[in-house]
Design a protein around this nucleic acid. Sequence first.
RNA 1: CGGGAGGUAGUUCAGCCCGGUAGAAUACGUGGUUUGGGACCACGGGGUCGCAGGUUCGAAUCCUGUCCUCCCGACCA
Length: 493
Amino acid sequence: MGKEITSRQEDYSQWYNDLVIKGGLADYSAVRGCMVIKPHGYSLWENMSDQLDRMFKETGHQNAYFPLFVPKSFLEKEEGHAEGFAKECAVVTHYRLKADPTSNGKLIVDPEAKLEEELIIRPTSEAIIWNTYKDWIQSYRDLPILVNQWANVVRWEMRTRLFLRTAEFLWQEGHTAHATKEEAVEETKKMLGVYATFAEEYMALPVVRGLKTESEKFAGAEDTYSIEALMQDGKALQCGTSHFLGQNFAKAFDVKFLNKENQQEYVWATSWGASTRLVGAVVMAHSDDDGLVLPPRIAPLQVVIIPISSKDATAQSKINDKAHQLMRELKAANISVKYDNDDSNRPGWKFAEYEMKGVPVRIALGARDLQNNVAEVVRRDTKEKQSISLDELASHVVKLLGNIQNDMFNKAKSYRDAHTTRVDSWDDFEKTLDEKGGFISAHWDGTAETEDAIKEKTKATIRCIPLDAVKENGKCILTGKPSTQRVLFARAY
RNA sequence: CGGGAGGUAGUUCAGCCCGGUAGAAUACGUGGUUUGGGACCACGGGGUCGCAGGUUCGAAUCCUGUCCUCCCGACCA
């Protein structure tokens, strides 16, 4: 009855769509490639973005806001950057509509209102920001600039998927300016670390920190680092990127500073971003065939209390009293909790509904429980039921939420580790990819040609060169040429 | 952007081939009985059949165009 979810086994893509739609996270919109993020989904994103925002501020960054529109001439300035994004830009060419003289009630673009220079809707903000930084920076005393912005961006994608790839999406983009290369490189790595910590501690999502290959790196960057996670279907998902931009944007926008020796130098730059794709990641990594499974630390609602109502008015008022007391205790412990005493749905319906929405802990309170001085406590991740004494219920739930958070991380990590395979022959490479999926740790000769050839043959790409890779002599999986370390391959979203 | 499927009540879908009063389930409203895994009874409200043209006495149904979605590819966070 009610909302059915397609099982993972039957159709993984449809399962994911069902979760997002039926779990109340988002809806399709009337606009091609764009989604409506619903309150439950936005609340999840807020819990994630709020925490990231705290972590950015703890590492010395401040928020600012730059324009949505980027003059085309700005975007052109950094050549690699321009080439990388040109294919997916939305362009504003006019600034006015007028009534259609040939069709009553319709509007047309006013041909008189053509912009002298087209405006590009930002696919990312390096261009407009570096054009601005030029005015902010004269001396080494003006550096570093450590700025982040929370914004929407538009990339005109051919094929979209809820949260994972939409034409418009929400994200944050950090843009920093530094006096030295060393400092910029350190910043790049520091922010990669922030993303990794966030993913692991809050999203309960184990990630691999690594360096992107030349062909996978950001358009305009010297080096791109990313965190890579593994989804339940064995495909990889990039969950955050941090770029060392060198002096590329400083040179393109002529941003120089006077150093202590009174000499002009170009500024060193970084940028780093994470998007609403993280919502897709957390959904896909943990959920099951009954709905969303959300980590307690970012769940929009952590605990729901469901009364098993009784005809007996005395028993009913005891249930209400106990539920309200419990809510006070949990709120005092900084836990979000809801008492669902809406009489229009029966308990069984509510059980299914809150499982669908991924609420980590459910407490059922009935007359029978109160007689025994207990409540039924059920954890969403394992569905395990426990009868807990009312006297220690609040403290038990606090501990339980912590356990769920840890268990979810450990479960995801066991899966990830079990699906990371060291492979040393081409036959094994193809076989592992097809039969098992996941990450494949293998040697690569370091050339873009080989990388492309592997992608052509298997659809697997190099997700990253892990930062913790040990130096080890070996032979390239495809060409047999010498290699000094393993890289991580996978099919990816 | 190529290939496939689809758009009819809030939702899932039937009806379309073979044109003739727009249906089911579920959801929703009211009243009542209920409440430990998606309750039951009674009554009730709800759809310009994605949109725009065309053919026809008559179009959800046939034709053309267009928009949107899903799946599979190519491209990408």
